[in-house]
Design a protein around this nucleic acid. Structure first.
Length: 511
DNA sequence: CGTTTTTGACCAGCGC
DNA sequence: GCGCTGGTCAAAAACG
């Protein structure tokens, strides 16, 4: 099963979770957990039930449909073991004696009043979400009509049309998901099928060829027409976008191959992520005296997952591990957390890069939504040949437990889409090319495209900014959770033992 | 002896 | 076109 953000619990309202094995939960409303909206809660590590929160906590599904929060609240209340237990307990007690303490009665009334207030708030929020949904639906219809017009004009291969289709796919998926999956938040289809995640469920057909070179590109929604894409999984040899290429040949697909880089302090050769790796190369990269080691997953033949391990040039106690691709085989529990986390991070990155690639999302908006309050732990960069999200676990020994990490470092190459957010500092981007060298930025800034290929689009944006923001808000509500990056990092940290492992006698050939 | 690591060679992309 | 660089291959060596 491809990793997804969808709930996999056996019933009940959906709750966004990175993976059942990943200790991450997302509650839709802070009203019930006491922090900001869309709070990503940390799963209780001691919770053996694996699907229930600790005492008193109530999980709420993220709802973008018309379902009332009151309804959901009731469900949640009844499904919550703590509340259910309380209910049962109360029933038993009343049947036994009528010596109900007046104090308890008062408390109960107070709780009831508070609960009702919460429900009222929820209803209000629900109304807003309904409005949002209607806006998205209306815009989706408009886009569909626009696409039909373009198709009629025989411009299927026109870049604008392609892009319009793409946008519609995104929005359509969003709307579909909203309509179809009540009580769940579903990422737009392609968000979930992009890059690494898209490959997961597909059996590798590389058994007859050398591993790592034969896995087909993701056969996802957006790529189905990309017959000319590099058959190799290796998008490192990314095509550079040129206006002469057809839309089907655009390197969008290559740009969607996200990488997730993890920085952690470790004396080990590499962090223990639960997978088996075989080293297949080592190279001295420019600007870093420490060699970069290349590993390939050996848990299954033909597994396309690779990772690079390199020590930070500035601080050699920091190990930088960069993951690419997704496993085509079941993972041991120890590896699930890392896999889920990297996939989630990649999805988060890709969802951002997608919209921004089309120039549809204001960079400031993106910056303010995707990682509004995340710390420097999460650095998203599309400036590299492939978009990379860097999770920095080297800072505060336990920043994840803090309620509000400092401001995000978030930088997308938006040369024309408004001034990019000014990061406080960018100390965690390594080995990535300058903005003007990236395929991403080229796609963004290509003057030919801007001038000749997208004249209509420039004059008539496919999606009004407000709509874009509305659509983005739906997904950003999930990915932009203030604690999202922190939670991701938390999951990773749980795997690598907090990134502060004591030195182990190992032949550290990385150094 | 099978597996893993090492390491020089090779290839492709990119900038000049 | 050339050189640089990152990434990969594959034969040899090392290891258990």
């Amino acid at each position: 099963m491809t990793q997804s953000y969808m709930d996999r619990r056996g019933g009940g309202a959906g709750v966004l979770t990175l993976d059942t094995s990943a200790p991450l939960f997302l509650a839709s409303s802070s009203n019930y957990v006491g922090t900001g909206g869309g709070v990503l809660k940390r799963k209780q590590p001691t919770d053996s039930s694996d699907h229930h929160l600790g005492t008193g906590a109530i999980e709420f599904p993220i709802s973008l449909n018309a379902r009332s929060h009151a309804e959901m609240a009731e469900e949640a209340l009844s499904s919550n073991p703590a509340v259910a237990d309380e209910k049962k307990k109360n029933t038993n007690e009343t049947s036994m004696v009528e010596q109900v303490d007046d104090e308890d009665d008062k408390e109960g009334r107070n709780e009831l009043a508070a609960m009702q207030a919460e429900l009222a708030r929820m209803n209000e929020e629900n109304q807003k979400l309904r409005l949002l949904l209607s806006q998205v639906s209306a815009s989706y219809s408009a886009l569909e009509m626009h696409l039909a017009t373009l198709t009629r004009q025989g411009h299927q291969r026109n870049n604008e049309s392609w892009k319009a289709r793409e946008v519609i796919e995104v929005m359509g998926a969003t709307v579909d998901a909203m309509n179809r999956d009540r009580g769940r938040v579903i990422f737009p289809r392609h968000f979930m099928e992009l890059g690494p995640a898209a490959e997961e469920d597909k059996p590798s057909n590389s058994s007859t060829a050398s591993p790592g070179r034969s896995s087909p590109p993701p056969d996802n929604l957006l790529y189905k027409n990309d017959e000319n894409l590099d058959p190799s999984w290796n998008t490192n040899k990314a095509l550079k976008f040129t206006p002469t290429k057809t839309a089907e040949q655009t390197p969008l697909a290559t740009m969607r191959k996200a990488r997730v880089s993890v920085r952690a302090r470790s004396e080990l050769t590499m962090i223990a992520d639960g997978c088996h790796w075989r080293k297949y190369g080592q190279k001295i990269a420019k600007g870093n005296p420490c060699p970069r080691a290349y590993y390939r997953c050996t848990m299954a033949t033909g597994c396309p997952v690779r990772k690079q391990v390199q020590r930070c040039a500035d601080d050699r106690s920091i190990l930088i591990t960069t993951y690419e691709g997704n496993h085509n085989h079941p993972l041991p529990p120890a590896a699930m957390a890392m896999k889920s986390t990297t996939s989630a991070a990649a999805s988060m990155l890709l969802s951002g890069s997608m919209t921004s690639t089309d120039g549809l999302m204001n960079s400031n908006f993106l910056a303010s939504t995707v990682l509004p309050c995340s710390s420097s732990m999460a650095t998203v960069s599309a400036s590299a040949p492939f978009p990379t999200v860097t999770l920095d676990l080297t800072q505060d020994p336990n920043p994840l437990l803090s309620k509000r990490p400092p401001a995000a470092q978030f930088h997308f190459p938006f040369p024309s889409g408004g001034a990019p957010p000014q990061p406080q500092s960018l100390p965690h981007v390594h080995g990535q090319k300058l903005l003007n060298q990236s395929a991403f930025s080229e796609f963004q800034t290509s003057p030919q495209m801007a001038a000749s290929q997208l004249p209509q689009q420039r004059a008539q944006p496919v999606v009004p900014p407000s709509l874009t923001e509305a659509v983005s808000a739906a997904t950003a509500a999930i990915t932009a959770d203030p604690n999202f990056a922190a939670a991701l990092a938390d999951a990773i940290k749980s795997v690598i033992g907090g990134g502060h492992r004591p030195p182990v006698n190992s032949s550290d050939n990385i150094m």
